[in-house]
Simulated assay, not measured.
Amino acid sequence: MINCLLIDDEKAAIEILKNYITKTPLLNCIGGATNAMDGLKILNENDVNLVFLDVRMPDMTGIDFIKLIPDTCKVILTTAHIEYALDGYDYGVVDYLLKPFSLARFAKAVQKAQSLLTMEGTKRKYSSVNDDHIFVKTQLKGKLIKIDYPDIDYIEAVKNYVAIHRGREKILVLITMKELEEILPKNRFIRVHKSFIVPVERIKSVEGAHLMLKNTTVEIPFGDSYKVGFYDAIRGRLL
């Protein structure tokens, strides 16, 4: 559930948003405010994930409001003034809804916000504050496994799971390859196939359509669509 806050100096605009929210099971409306200061008070007193924010308001503009809130709180601008779109994107807004907007356009913006919140939530869930390991949940409730990056041989997609190969162990994690790729440090891991991510330090050689890794006899397929990104990543070390 995404907790959202509505801030607009027009009460009619807030009512339209509330109506759209009631038709969107994903959303939970925490409250509405007709000025930025009241909105800021609500935000500070509640767990708010998403703000639907007007730009032109008395006392404080929507852009000024964005500067005061944490990055973890996402913003969708709702305004009749298209000239503010670029300003909004400069501050990392999720989307820009130009009034009047339809329920379908509203739903599209919400989907974008959901994707961002899910991805960032996954990072917080699986990532450690350190840059040399991660903690992953196992299939046993309450059990976590610490995995040091240097111990990872390679990572493989297995149906709805990702298998982290560590020596003789194969640790299954309920996460997508894309999500894990975003979490892992890009200077240490590289995706070489739709189903494989490898540690850069483990690569022994590239042989046509395969990569050979240290400490394992497994041949890792090298997908054509990943070759450009791979060679870009090693460009500074390619002789």
Rank of each mutant, 00 (worst) to 15 (best):
L5N: 07
I7R: 01
A12M: 05
A13P: 03
E15S: 10
I16A: 02
K18L: 10
Y20H: 12
Y20S: 05
I21P: 03
I21H: 07
I21C: 11
K23I: 06
T24L: 03
L26I: 14
I30W: 08
I30S: 01
A33W: 06
T34M: 13
N35M: 04
N35Y: 00
N35H: 08
D38Q: 04
L40I: 14
L40E: 13
D47R: 11
V48C: 06
N49K: 07
F52K: 04
L53M: 01
D54R: 03
V55H: 01
P58Y: 13
T61C: 01
T61D: 12
G62L: 00
G62H: 04
I63Y: 04
I66M: 09
K67S: 11
K67W: 09
P70A: 06
P70G: 04
K74E: 12
L77S: 05
T78A: 15
H81P: 00
A85S: 12
D87A: 11
G88W: 08
D90I: 02
Y91W: 07
V93T: 06
V94S: 02
D95R: 06
L98F: 03
S102P: 01
L103K: 09
L103H: 07
R105N: 01
Q111P: 05
K112N: 06
S115C: 08
S115Q: 15
L116P: 00
G121T: 05
G121S: 11
K123H: 13
K125R: 14
D132C: 08
D132M: 10
H133P: 00
H133N: 12
H133K: 09
I134M: 01
F135L: 08
V136R: 00
V136E: 01
K137W: 02
Q139Y: 07
Q139S: 15
L140C: 08
G142W: 05
L144V: 03
K146T: 01
Y149M: 06
Y154A: 05
E156T: 04
E156W: 00
A157F: 09
A157D: 12
K159E: 10
V162M: 05
I164W: 07
H165P: 03
E169V: 09
E169D: 15
K170M: 06
K170E: 15
K170R: 14
L172Y: 04
L174K: 13
M177Q: 10
E179C: 07
L180Q: 08
E181I: 10
I183M: 04
L184R: 04
P185E: 14
K186D: 04
N187R: 11
N187M: 09
F189Q: 04
K194R: 15
I197R: 10
P199Y: 10
V200L: 13
V200S: 11
E201M: 14
V206I: 13
V206T: 14
A209K: 09
K214G: 03
N215Y: 06
F222Y: 10
G229I: 07
D232V: 02
A233E: 03
I234W: 07
G236A: 15
L238M: 15
